[in-house]
Design a protein around this nucleic acid. Structure first.
Lengths: 337, 337
DNA sequence: GCTGCAGATGTAATCGATTACAGTTTTACG
DNA sequence: CGTAAAACTGTAATCGATTACATCTGCAGC
């Protein structure tokens, strides 16, 4: 291994001078700088990052906790995080939690052991174990698209899921729909509650009933969409819904697939909506009406906020709400008479 | 910050004893172990990972270079990598190269600076700059699904793209097709050449002509599929193809979309095939005939191989070919008479 | 020529661990 | 009881950097 000592010997100077030449060149004379640089070249020297970090106490890395890597929506957020991190000199440590608490704890504790400086959370639970709750108090941490209600609070970036729920509902009602189904994802999340509350608030205002058994589903997967449609349309309720809210685009893909398989046409027989605006949603048949989330931007903002926390700069606000956009495409239409 | 010294004072022992208690408990007596553990608890002590790493010279991290995070196929590989890494005690540093050489260099040099112990490459180019080529000689590095032909060689995990190309072609020929189009992705990659060679070899054997202008495309995106179809069907060639090979599922999504938009039916008018078997491909309308790559498994194997390189264990072979599977679904069918 | 100061470089402490080696205590056994 | 070996613990070197402080040189100003 070529270390700073070897270079210093090669250049005939002290290690301090080598270090200075590389970090603050203005402190050494032209002459020695050249000597040192030549030695650096010759030895193929690169400063050992671990050593630098242990000295400065900063790892310049951040952990990103994500429940699922294959979801393009999350990945878009992570692209934003990656870009922002890169610009600020941070590296991104990937923490695929697979929704398991044990994994979350494991990754989160990387911040406690100086392996990372901060944490970005795309999951929905508090990522520290009961043991570490007290320590976690000081951990710089930001949550993207999920708010933690409860014991602990930290800054979060999200969009107004309540308003998005309302917008989707208004859109469908304007097409004359009045019998709705909902296929939800992870039900314990704040997102879920907000969207649901948004939908229900409009229904209430419009005097439309919503039976609890029209809410099905429980995870953000294609299969959930398929099973959701089966539950909504197979049960012995007299009248199936004419419009179905799917709480993400994957669920909507499954729902669309299953509706077609049953010979139902979208949107002529049933309207469906997605959420997230993943790339393929625009190229489905029909293209999906969905809510666009500025995922990339959310990722970037998360890094900004996290960097402020890490550097103990004061935050203007602990809550950032980014704008969503309702994309009306082919999967929704007038109710069948 | 609570460090080992504080704990040692709290427990009334030396730092060496604290270190031993935590790393090799069998070296200390029951009595002191208890004392130390109590102090550790009380102080909320966690060993500083940076310090440990600088001492051992191992960061226990690996860098994964990926050209694009939103591609579910890559992400499936990374899931495998993540899982394998986790089991072996490595963390994964994400390197989103966005296909840019500068990014590649930047991330790759993390191995040269001890920030990571090795490198897994999902991209297709040699990730070190000309300057570092010599240093890179010693860097543990594995390539997944892409072989590097040329100056530098390192182990790779892939599937037999040549054979997969042949299998797809046989499948379409068995349906009576003889006029083919190809919408390719990244054309400079080895994958591209292998698949293309596989297809052409069968066509030659069967005495079927393939005009070079029936090969279009140049990146793995949905838009490439749309533009590809436009090029293949708009040109003034007398007869458009009856079957189109798309070199990944994203391209196939675009192709399917554009074909439908033009009023062509799949597979009655045109058959199309994808590649990779991403999740949604099974739920398209029609479901996509595609080649399943064991992406997750490829990721896991890559970590195994990389770990061997890092630990300087001898490799049985530098080339691992995993099995593919041709999935015949609804997007291919008999040629229209 | 001497003093003072700025600028360049070297010396050595430091970051937070691990671990070789030394020193001390305990145990085993004749 | 004495001695050697074993078991435990402490001291201090070490990993590879950074940096406070010390030292040395050279030059300006009186």
């Amino acid at each position: 291994m070529t270390n700073i000592k070897k270079v210093s010997e090669l250049a005939g100077v002290s290690t301090a001078t080598v270090s200075r030449t590389l970090k603050s060149p203005e402190l050494v004379t032209e002459h020695t700088r050249e000597k040192v640089m030549k030695a650096v070249q010759q030895a193929g020297y690169r400063p050992n990052w671990l050593a630098t970090s242990v000295k400065t106490g900063r790892s310049n890395s951040i952990v990103v906790l994500v429940p699922n890597l294959v979801n393009p929506f999350f990945m878009r957020i992570i692209e934003g995080i990656e870009q922002g991190a890169q610009e600020k000199g941070y590296s991104v440590l990937l923490g695929d939690t697979q929704g398991k608490a044990s994994r979350e704890h494991e990754y989160a504790s990387m911040v406690l052991t100086n392996r990372a400086d901060g944490l970005i959370q795309l999951d929905h639970s508090f990522p520290f174990s009961a043991n570490d709750a007290a320590l976690a108090e000081k951990v710089p941490m930001v949550s993207v698209c999920e708010r933690i209600e409860g014991e602990r609070r930290y800054p979060f970036i999200e969009l107004d899921n309540y308003a998005a729920g309302r917008a989707l509902t208004h859109h469908l009602i304007s097409y004359g729909h009045s019998r709705f189904g909902i296929i939800a994802g992870q039900r314990t999340s704040q997102i879920h509650h907000d969207r649901l509350a948004g939908i229900k608030s409009v229904l209430k205002e419009e005097g439309i009933d919503f039976a609890d058994n029209m809410l099905v589903g429980g995870s953000y997967r294609i299969e959930t969409g398929i099973e959701g449609i089966q539950q909504l349309f197979d049960r012995d309720v007299p009248v199936p819904p004419t419009a179905v809210f799917c709480f993400n685009d994957d669920i909507a893909v499954g729902a669309l697939y299953e509706l077609k398989r049953r010979g139902l046409r979208v949107p002529q027989d049933v309207s469906i909506t997605g959420f997230d605006n993943v790339k393929v949603s625009a190229y489905m048949d029909p293209p999906l009406t969905t809510v666009d989330q500025p995922a990339y931007e959310m990722g970037r903002r998360a890094v900004d906020v996290l960097a402020q926390l890490i550097n103990r700069q004061p935050l203007q606000r602990t809550r950032e709400i980014l704008p969503f956009q309702l994309l009306e495409r082919g999967s929704t239409g007038p109710v069948k008479i």
